[in-house]
């Protein structure tokens, strides 16, 4: 009985462990500057999207035909009222860029969740149940991959009519196959491991094996994939909106703004450049985060990274090395 009490106290003692892990993660992020920039930019973008109505200086849809095509503030004609100038209807470019982040990130998030969820479920079933299920899902994926995605999207949007919901649905329908394929591959690999066999021998039924033993191993590769897909979706939404089949006015979207701005490219370059830069920064930040995540989710790579940091520190601090060897002398 004392043993089980000891075990239970040990279990509670260990609950604070994740805090220490988080702290270590923070330290490693601080060392990886590219990852740090990505995380900071990403956080800033998300915050910006969340509090857009409060920080945007103007209503993004508010027109002021007397103040059309105002240049940014650093031009002679620019004013602090419109830091990045105004468009052909006199709407504030900065406010539109800030509000545009909402649409881009929202579409990205929704599509990743929908496509990811569906893809993972299909991949798990195909990989674990195998047989006919596997053949069915894989052929479905093959067929859909073979069909040009953008064309399909354009057809659906043209038939149903563009809106935020249709954009999300169309992009999800187009994007789930990657998750499905990756999940299936990972399931097939993890299925072979002795600990999954052990779980089967012990008498676990398949839902438990999938959700307790297989799925947790997929979290880090899936997360990395989801983040990269997120970047792709942001671009896809911008592209659809640019083509006029995505977000419809009066709502705002970076892609829509670029589309409108292109008509004034030679008179007012900022109309394309500001939303264009926003897209570029977002995609860059996501990619930086993704490559950092890939690094830390690979234990071997993480160890190597750490060792490089340590040896660099040892080399630069000669004094410390002397101290180390002095310590070894003392041991002898």
């Amino acid at each position: 009985m004392t043993q089980s009490i000891q075990l239970e106290t040990a279990l509670t003692d260990r609950r604070h462990e994740w805090l220490a892990k988080l702290r270590e993660l923070g330290r490693e992020l601080w060392r990886d500057k590219a990852g740090l920039i990505g995380v900071v930019l990403m956080t800033a973008l998300v915050l910006m999207a969340l509090v857009a109505p409060w920080i945007a200086p103007h209503d993004p849809a508010e027109q002021d035909l007397t103040a059309r095509l105002r240049p940014p503030v650093w031009y002679e004609k620019g004013t602090w009222d419109h830091v990045f100038g105004t468009d052909h209807l006199g709407r504030d470019v900065l406010s539109r860029a800030i509000h545009g982040a909402r649409v881009s990130l929202l579409v990205g998030l929704l599509v990743v969740v929908l496509a990811g969820g569906f893809g993972v479920v299909m991949g798990l079933m195909a990989g674990y149940l195998g047989g006919r299920m596997d053949a069915f899902v894989m052929r479905w994926i093959d067929t859909q991959v073979a069909f040009p995605g953008l064309l399909l999207a354009l057809i659906i949007l043209a038939v149903i009519g563009p809106s935020l919901t249709t954009v999300v649905v169309v992009l999800s329908l187009n994007g789930w196959m990657v998750y499905g394929r990756m999940t299936r591959g990972a399931v097939l690999a993890v299925r072979q491991t002795p600990y999954v066999e052990a779980a089967e021998i012990v008498g676990c039924r398949w839902p438990r094996i999938i959700f307790r033993h297989i799925l947790p191993n997929l979290t880090s590769p899936l997360l990395t994939l989801a983040i990269l897909e997120f970047a792709r979706i942001v671009l896809a939404e911008a592209a659809l909106s640019f083509l006029g089949l995505g977000i419809q006015p009066p709502a705002t979207s970076w892609g829509l703004d670029v589309a409108v701005g292109k008509n004034y490219m030679f008179m007012a370059w900022w109309l394309v450049t500001i939303p264009g830069t926003a897209i570029a920064i977002t995609v860059l930040a996501i990619n930086l985060v993704a490559s950092w995540m890939r690094l830390i989710s690979d234990p071997q790579e993480r160890e190597k990274q750490f060792a490089r940091h340590m040896t660099r520190r040892l080399r630069s601090k000669v004094g410390q090395r002397r101290k180390l060897s002095a310590g070894q002398e003392a041991i002898k």
């Binding site: 491991t193 002795p194 600990y195 066999e197 052990a198 021998i201 012990v202 033993h213």
Partner: peptide
């Protein structure tokens, strides 16, 4: 029951 060969891979 089964006891496995590889003590590393047989525990999740």
């Amino acid at each position: 029951q089964l006891v496995f060969q590889d003590p590393y891979a047989s525990l999740n």
